[in-house]
């Protein structure tokens, strides 16, 4: 039997690997025989994940991925250790709800910094000459919030829309190097519900919101499947898209 999503010999950097979705992605990548480097700013969680697998195909590294001063040096170091990468997955970033009157610049900056600037900076550094192989693939985790508005999610939605737009810009630009760039517009994932406690507790349009996701809540490993699909050679002519993985939320 053939495995069309075989990722053997592909070196994949997973940024934000310590989140539940991040770990699910790592798990799936290892299952498809990729070499995985986990990156995040909390070492402890990465150690825990690494210990679960204890494989020579799994490495991790730690620096503050949200500090733009550290990224260039950090990525350079990774390239020195592991050579050029074939894939980058960005599943870092953060959520957060605030009404407009409290959506001040500092809040917007934090959101943009974690959800957009650090992604662009990591992509910028890792696509330098000799750091990323031709034919490689970049995948960013975005959200259906990018295209659907929700009260009090102004900064979050804007950061995800900006992320998707940056993906389209990079995709056109990096096509010369045969590097593909795509994002995934995810709907409600089980792990989000633990994080988004305010929304959860306040029931800010929560029930109608869940009802919109007609296939129910998504499991992290399902998002991981879509990530692997976009990293694999199955999609070597797919670039610049934002793939909806939202259980029908946006219908």
């Amino acid at each position: 039997m053939i495995n069309t999503m075989d990722l053997t010999n592909k070196k994949i950097l997973v940024v934000g690997a310590s989140s539940e979705t991040g770990e699910a992605i790592v798990n799936q990548l290892l299952g498809l025989s990729a070499f995985v480097v986990m990156l995040d700013h909390v070492e402890e969680k990465l150690v825990n994940i690494a210990n679960k697998y204890n494989l020579n195909k799994l490495a991790f590294n730690c620096f503050n991925i949200y500090n733009n001063q550290e990224i260039e040096k950090g990525i350079k170091h990774l390239n020195t250790l592991y050579g050029p990468f074939d894939g980058l997955v960005f599943c870092g970033g953060k959520g957060g709800v605030r009404p407009l009157q409290l959506t001040k610049n500092s809040f917007i900056h934090d959101m943009m910094n974690d959800n957009l600037y650090s992604f662009v900076e990591i992509a910028r550094c890792i696509t330098k000459k000799g750091c990323f192989n031709n034919g490689g693939s970049i995948v960013a985790i975005s959200s259906v919030s990018s295209i659907k508005g929700l009260k009090s999610k102004i900064a979050y939605s804007a950061s995800k829309a900006a992320l998707d737009a940056s993906v389209r810009g990079m995709a056109s630009e990096l096509s010369d190097k045969k590097i593909r760039v795509n994002s995934i517009l995810k709907g409600w994932v089980t792990s989000d519900m633990k994080l988004d406690f305010i929304q959860d507790n306040m029931e800010l349009s929560k029930n109608e919101d869940f009802a919109k996701q007609i296939l129910g809540v998504i499991e992290p490993n399902e998002i991981a499947n879509t990530v692997c699909f976009l990293l694999s050679d199955l999609t070597k002519t797919i670039t610049g898209t934002a793939i909806l993985h939202d259980g029908g939320y946006s219908l």
Partner: peptide, 22 residues
């Protein structure tokens, strides 16, 4: 509900206190 959300942020920013839904 928007007012309650506003209150959560105000308590956090002005008084450094986390207000839960409960």
């Amino acid at each position: 509900s928007m007012a309650k959300l506003t209150l959560i942020v105000v308590c956090d920013e002005e008084f450094n206190k986390k207000l839960t839904g409960e």
